[in-house]
Simulated scan of single mutants.
Amino acid sequence: MANTILVNMNRCTGCWTCSMACKGAHHLDVDEFWQYVRTIGGGEIDQPGGKWPNLYMKWMPVWKQKCAKCAGDDSTGFIPYSYCVYNCPAGALTYGDASDPTSEVSLRKQELLDKGFRVYEIPEWEETRKGVLYAENSI
């Protein structure tokens, strides 16, 4: 089974719910994160880049190598989603078996590709979890 998380970057609102769900589910210390949200913009959390009136900012959930890609428990009704995916209020995350062409993650990936999204992984040198795909377009 090739469990994969697909992130629709155009839907992520930077709310950190995915990260807080992970922390709570795994009882992590206050300063420990297995998953966090990177701000793409001005270099600080929630700081836009650019100059007025051409400001820009978006968010990128990032999974560290410690990520367990958990598959839920009784709090999720044993739905085969990781806590981060299950709790995302924006519907930006999809979870499933990428090797199964009929899985939710494979179908969503194809849908985004058909809409002109670029799908990629973060390079290994960033020491992130394998099996996380990012999809974004320029709209």
Rank of each mutant, 00 (worst) to 15 (best):
T4N: 00
I5D: 00
M9I: 14
R11H: 06
R11W: 04
G14P: 01
C18T: 00
C18G: 08
C18Q: 10
C18H: 00
C18W: 07
A21H: 02
G24E: 09
G24S: 08
H26A: 07
H26V: 08
H27V: 06
W34P: 00
Q35H: 08
Y36Q: 03
V37Y: 02
V37A: 04
I40F: 05
G42I: 01
G43V: 04
Q47K: 09
G49S: 06
K51I: 09
N54D: 15
N54L: 09
L55W: 06
L55C: 01
Y56P: 01
M57C: 08
W59G: 00
M60F: 01
K66A: 12
C70H: 08
D73S: 14
S75D: 09
S75F: 11
G77N: 13
F78L: 08
S82E: 06
N87F: 11
C88M: 08
G91K: 04
L93N: 13
L93E: 03
S99I: 01
S99F: 04
D100G: 13
P101W: 05
T102M: 13
V105R: 15
K109T: 12
K109E: 09
L112R: 05
L113M: 14
K115H: 02
F117I: 12
I122D: 11
E127H: 13
T128L: 10
R129C: 07
G131P: 00
L133V: 09
E136F: 12
S138M: 15
I139C: 06
